[in-house]
Design a protein around this nucleic acid. Structure first.
Lengths: 119, 119
DNA sequence: CCGTATCCTTAGGGATACTG
DNA sequence: CAGTATCCCTAAGGATACGG
């Protein structure tokens, strides 16, 4: 049994699911992890791959993921600067679950006819 | 390939993961589904099982889940009223994934020593 | 190219009180 | 018991501009 409480950033979680959601349950973090699944990506490329994310939220989210050690940041000291992000082992361990969420959404959308008709 | 767009409630999603997150990626919805995994629950019991949810957010979330056909609502015409919620098939299909997220959180917390010491 | 800072708007969410 | 309605506040998030 793991019914003890999790303490993280001055918050208490009596359910580990609630804790997981705190880490990746927002609008962008799991999308970022998802787009890193093939390997390291340049910062700009990564940001572009996530449509409709503002610069501000991209930085905010990737910083949080970095602090939680789900992604690693690599800086190449060149001009102009080159920055790459890649998944840590902990980050990688989330990918199979995120893939399932993606697949689930696909099926749900198909079953409910939510796909826009192809042009 | 399923690279077409998903349209849902006047929003476009070019990634089915983003769509999934729209459905259950907030603070409470997946928690509610999670607590329904054993079977139907009375409204009050369900709400109590989710610590720290306000009445307002409980109603709001369960209505959304109902509209998305992830939970079913059963009303017994008695006084005082008795209302039960249970998972639909679509809702049930999410449980294995949610369980994995829960387990992932447990492990992560253990690896990072985030559990409060037992008393 | 990469990131920070600032300003501003909206949406998420708590507390309380009230009805069938 | 189950649910709405109201009020209010905080945090999520967009847009823009600027600096190393």
């Amino acid at each position: 049994m793991a019914s003890e409480k999790i303490i993280y950033q001055d918050k208490e979680f009596n359910c580990s699911l609630a804790f997981t959601l705190q880490l990746i349950g927002d609008k962008y973090k799991s999308l970022i992890l998802f787009h890193l699944k093939e390997g390291p990506q340049r910062s700009g490329e990564l940001q572009k791959s996530i449509t409709d994310i503002s610069n501000r939220m991209f930085t905010y989210s990737i910083r949080a993921l970095e602090k939680d050690q789900l992604v690693k940041r690599k800086v190449y000291p060149v001009t102009p600067p080159r920055v790459e992000y890649e998944l840590t082992d902990a980050g990688k361990s989330l990918i199979p679950i995120i893939l399932k969420l993606d697949q689930w959404g696909q099926e749900f959308a198909r079953n409910h006819y939510l796909y826009a008709p192809a042009e």
